[in-house]
């Protein structure tokens, strides 16, 4: 904790039923105040990792501390410190949104006046004030996710766990959710541990990410570091004529330049942020003019591909498959 580390795992392992190795020898270290992403396809072990850190299930090997407390020996202290937004809905459908949050605030002994104040503020933050006194049964999927988000925050936790906060939501609702998460991190100053199988979500939110697959960490870093490590931003330029396009092939300090259609070239560079000024200088020196210029950086999807040899899209399946999987999970229990 001295260096601002708030969560640390040492060879954290979970084996289900003696043979399903869901998480194996996981080592991660999370600093106070950051948004830390756990990214990986379905079945990678993200939820299992979260469930161990929130003391809902016990590890079968290794250890971890959350806020300085051991997750097995001091599980009660850990629970007091954290807020949790699990992957599945937890609100009681027969109570109103407000009653659900109020009940959870009582679990943490938040004084009533304080709880009321927090609940008002949180409902406003996720724009649920109008629906707060309706039964949760009448909420849409997006509303329920938003409710879950603030239920996890009512006792002002220092650490918030968000397991797949946008699972099952449509694109607009997802980006809205991202804004809420950013706002929460800035306004409430909490450390957030976020899991997602949408890599663009991790990219958009997390300051640091561990990509996990089959229960193992493949690589850890900031999303920009990970993408930069792939070495291969593409600058695509369309110029006024073919002569200018050909001249671009002599631009210095790039990996390669290839033709990409009429009057168009693709320039491959290590890092577009640094290369772009050089390219633009070159253009003005030679008095060329550009009609179109786009910069394409590798996404975390390419990073995943690089480290696993396969695309995360292959695993993901459609939303329908996700829902089926969730229902099956329920049915199995």
């Amino acid at each position: 904790m001295m260096d601002g580390t708030i969560i640390e795992t040492k060879n954290l392992t979970k084996v289900y039923n003696g043979n399903i190795k869901a998480v194996s020898d996981l080592n991660i270290s999370i600093r106070e105040g950051e948004i830390y992403g756990l990214a990986g396809p379905n079945g990678a072990g993200k939820t299992t990792t979260i469930n161990m850190l929130i003391t809902r299930i016990a590890p079968t090997g290794g250890s971890a501390t959350v806020g300085g407390f051991d997750i097995v020996r001091d599980s009660l202290a850990v629970r007091r410190l954290i807020g949790v937004v699990p992957q599945d809905f937890t609100a009681d459908e027969d109570l109103t949104g407000r009653e659900n949050i109020m009940m959870v605030s009582q679990f943490y002994d938040v004084p009533k006046a304080k709880a009321k104040e927090n609940i008002g503020r949180l409902l406003k933050l996720v724009e649920l004030e109008d629906a707060a006194d309706r039964l949760v049964r009448t909420y849409s999927g997006g509303m329920r996710k938003r409710l879950e988000l603030i239920i996890g925050l009512v006792h002002e936790p220092r650490i918030l766990f968000l397991d797949e906060p946008t699972l099952g939501l449509d694109i607009q609702t997802r980006t809205q959710m991202w804004n809420y998460v950013r706002e929460i991190q800035q306004k409430l100053n909490v450390t957030i541990i976020l899991t997602s199988h949408y890599l663009e979500e991790i990219d958009a939110l997390a300051g640091k990410v561990s990509i996990i697959d089959h229960g193992k960490v493949l690589i850890t870093g900031s999303p920009s570091e990970l993408k930069a490590s792939l070495k291969g931003d593409i600058i695509t330029m369309t110029l006024t004529d073919q002569k200018s396009a050909d001249l671009m092939k002599t631009v210095p300090g790039v990996i390669e330049v290839v033709d990409a259609g009429p009057n168009t070239v693709k320039i491959k560079v290590d890092n577009a942020d640094e290369a772009l000024p050089r390219v633009i200088n070159f253009i003005s020196q030679h008095e060329l003019s550009t009609i179109k210029l786009t910069v394409q950086k590798p996404s975390l999807d390419e990073v995943f591909l690089e480290y696993t040899g396969r695309s995360i899209r292959d695993e993901e399946g459609g939303m329908d498959r996700m829902k089926t999987a969730m229902n099956l999970r329920r049915a199995r229990q």
């Binding site: 929130i54 003391t55 809902r56 009660l76 629970r79 007091r80 954290i82 949790v84 699990p86 599945d88 809905f89 937890t90 609100a91 009681d92 459908e93 959870v104 679990f107 943490y108 239920i151 329920r330 229990q333």
Partner: peptide, 15 residues
């Protein structure tokens, strides 16, 4: 409660 989700909330709360 286990099927419909509230149990997950209870088990991660300090109750």
């Amino acid at each position: 409660d286990r099927r419909l989700g509230p149990m997950g909330r209870f088990l991660s709360s300090p109750i």
